[in-house]
Nucleic acid binder design. Structure first.
Length: 702
DNA sequence: GGTTAGAGTATCTTC
DNA sequence: TACTCTAACC
């Protein structure tokens, strides 16, 4: 096997096949190449059966790509290796072992929206006002508890205030509901395998025997459960290879803990650590800028990326008048690039929040720039698509209450709130799913309909089944009768959905409802980003661009309040995460980076102004070429004026921890801490602790 | 039981 | 702004 294309460290990482290995791989240092080569090396040179290899990637797309690359190196047998995300891996374990865990075969996976719906419903059923108790927050509490192995009972014991008492009750009921419905949430996909392994050592033994070699990518973004799962599988074999980069840890909001990397050497005492610091992706200008930004983080291992790719062009910085001006700038620059022979597909525009894609879209449509939005509120979030999926889920698992409640009266069948409430009551009393307690009434008609469709399920292809649902439920007729622009659109979307099922069938051969639904729940829009088939500009969030690279990258909205996001103000750990996010964004670019922001931007329907992001100031000015210095100067005067006029007090307000204050919106509060210009203040329920600009006029000492 | 207007709230990121 | 939820009316 030819390892000549690898540098010294990369080669070392490939050759070290036995025992624990940690690869600290900087952005663009060729880690995917190392991982795939390593898998191929294990198979070809060490004679390892691919069946004994487990490789975990961050997205399904990355998994597919890795599988393909290994396929190109070793051929057909690559397919025997298990290459997937943690969540897909969890699903496969569940599907083979559901009996041990007390589930039946047709498990439906809930997405985060579904979980939230269950929480809301549970709050209501338990008689709590969901204006007082924030369902989202409670869902997060439940998720955290599950991930940290805290049971509802344990949580109830530790409950310390009104909210956590309510949360503990909702948590218990939430778990009961999921189980009765034979449904699992995203957390369960990781937690249930752990539970299984703890309770059934023989099953764990089987997986240990199978997965002699375990490789994990993006280790900095593993959460507690993923960490535990990894440790359980590799405790005895010890052939574990983790790849990660602390500077690219950007998923802490989801429970990821980059300290898993820092602790690797403690967990595996005999570990070898290899650093990959040569970057093969970007120009030194881009790398220097990235290094300038990230070196301001305190919590990190020292590392400096370098490259041989030459200095390249300076970074272009444009400070726009407002959002649409910024969009115009982006399209103008894109058109210039395209005139120079650049392909649209080699360009990406990155933003902090999905909401920012809209204004870009307008600009792109105006200037006729072809684009592709990755992720965001996409196709699968449309009502008609959610409805058809709910029908499919219900046909697959009639106990799935969430899907049932979604479609029992869609289209209208005259089953109103009263009847539904009665059904829910009955199902709670009898500890059964809603479907199982239906007997008689209009509901019976609905049940009969589902029974007929269930019967058809095995007798036709997926696409035909979808068509059958559209006809038999009356969904199609409803939209056809409506004859509005909107209903036309919905019909088109439903046709589009059928072409998705058809594509799926063509790709996989004849497929089961189970496979299709699993893919739907786990494969996200991010996995759909265009692979160069379409020559379009990619629009995506900084989070979803992780692992990708483009010749030309635009980072827009580099403003205080957006990037870094205002919710992170005053919280050091979160500001550092925002900075890592910025680092990830910068290091996506190969040839040239464009950064921009806007003085005025419409948010929440109101025009607001903001200053340039602190991260821009951290970059050595010599690396930056300011596109519009005059406007910039003028604008900074405007900016000063805005600042002077309104929101802030002229003099510094002396706020200290312990001070009582009054806020125009949140009322009375107590200062918890003050750092720099940010005061953390605890307000009364339901506001809680807020981080606010200390000198804001809305705050006064009392 | 269905419809609709008004209120309220969120936009932070995702498997 | 735009979406979702609720209450009141039909």
């Amino acid at each position: 096997m030819n390892l000549e294309e690898l540098n010294k460290e990369q080669k070392e990482a490939v050759l070290k096949t036995e025992g624990p290995l940690l690869i600290l791989a900087g952005a663009g240092s060729g880690k995917t190449k190392v991982l795939t080569t390593k898998i191929a090396y294990l198979i070809e040179e060490c004679g390892i059966d691919p069946y004994n290899i487990l490789a975990i990637t961050f997205t399904n797309k990355a998994a597919k790509e890795m599988q393909n690359r290994v396929y190109n190196m070793v051929g057909e047998k690559a397919k025997k290796a298990q290459i997937s995300t943690f969540h897909s891996f969890g699903v496969s374990i569940l599907r083979s072992n559901y009996r041990y865990l007390g589930y039946s075969s047709n498990i439906v996976i809930l997405d985060s929206d579904d979980s939230l719906t269950v929480v809301k419903r549970t709050l209501r059923e338990l008689g709590f006002d969901n204006k007082v108790y924030n369902a989202n927050k409670i869902r997060n509490i439940i998720s955290d508890s599950k991930n940290n192995d805290v049971s509802p009972e344990e949580f109830a014991k530790k409950a310390y205030d009104d909210e956590s008492v309510v949360a503990s009750k909702v948590y218990a009921e939430y778990e009961r509901k999921l189980k009765i419905n034979n449904t699992v949430d995203f957390d369960d996909l990781l937690i249930l395998p752990i539970k299984l392994f703890k309770e059934h050592k023989e099953v764990l033994k089987m997986y240990e025997d199978r997965f002699q070699y375990v490789l994990i990518d993006e280790y900095q973004d593993t959460n507690e459960a993923q960490y535990t799962l990894t440790k359980m599988l590799t405790k005895n074999n010890r052939n574990i290879c983790c790849v990660g980069d602390i500077d690219q840890s950007i998923y802490s909001f989801r429970g990821a803990n980059y300290r898993n990397i820092l602790n690797f050497e403690k967990d595996y005492k005999e570990a070898t650590v290899i650093k990959l610091e040569q970057n093969y992706r970007s120009t030194t200008t881009i790398l220097d800028a990235a290094n300038d930004v990230i070196k301001n983080n305190k919590e990190r291992k020292d590392k400096v990326l370098w490259s041989n790719n030459g200095i390249g062009e300076k970074i272009s910085y444009y400070r726009a008048q407002n959002g649409s001006d910024e969009a115009r700038y982006v399209t103008k620059e894109i058109n210039k690039l395209v005139d120079q022979g650049v392909e649209y597909r080699d360009i990406a525009v990155l933003y902090r929040t999905n909401a920012m894609s809209r204004i870009l879209e307008e600009g792109f449509i105006n200037d006729k720039v072809p684009y592709h939005i990755v992720g965001g509120i996409g196709f699968y979030n449309r009502k008609e698509i959610k409805d058809i999926i709910a029908y499919l889920k219900l046909i697959y698992n009639e106990k799935d209450d969430i899907s049932l409640l979604r479609v029992i009266n869609t289209p209208k069948r005259g089953i109103g709130n009263r009847s539904i409430e009665k059904l829910i009551e009955k199902s709670n009393e009898e500890n059964k799913s809603i479907y199982d307690v239906i007997s008689g009434g209009k509901e019976q008609g609905f049940k009969d309909l589902i029974e007929i469709l269930k019967d058809k399920q095995n007798k036709m292809t997926l696409t035909d089944l979808v068509e059958e649902i559209l006809i038999m439920t009356g969904i199609r007729k409803e939209y056809e009768d409506e004859k509005t622009l909107e209903s036309e659109n919905r019909l088109e979307n439903l046709e589009e959905f059928k072409s998705i099922t058809r594509t799926f069938e063509d790709r996989e051969g004849l497929v089961s409802l189970e496979d299709f639904l699993t893919e739907l729940s786990l494969v996200t829009d991010v996995d759909e980003s265009n692979d160069g088939d379409d020559n379009k500009v990619n629009l995506l969030t900084v989070h979803s661009v992780k692992g990708l690279e483009f010749d030309y990258v635009f980072i827009i909205g580099l403003e205080e309040g957006i990037f870094p996001h205002m919710n992170s103000f005053g919280i050091d750990s979160e500001l550092e995460e925002e900075r890592r996010l910025c680092y990830v964004a910068i290091t996506r670019a190969r040839k040239k980076l464009f950064i921009s922001n806007a003085i005025f931007r419409i948010m929440f329907g109101q025009e607001q102004s903001s200053e340039p992001s602190r991260y821009i100031k951290e970059i050595n000015p010599e690396l930056i070429d300011i596109v519009n210095p005059e406007i910039n100067k003028h604008n900074s005067k405007v900016q000063e004026k805005i600042n002077a006029e309104s929101k802030y007090n002229d003099e510094d307000v002396d706020l200290q921890a312990g001070d009582n204050v009054y806020h125009d919106v949140f009322g009375q509060g107590k200062v918890i801490s003050v750092s720099n210009d940010i005061a953390k203040i605890a307000f009364k329920h339901p506001y809680g602790v807020k981080s606010l600009i200390k000198n804001h006029k809305s705050i006064s000492k009392i």
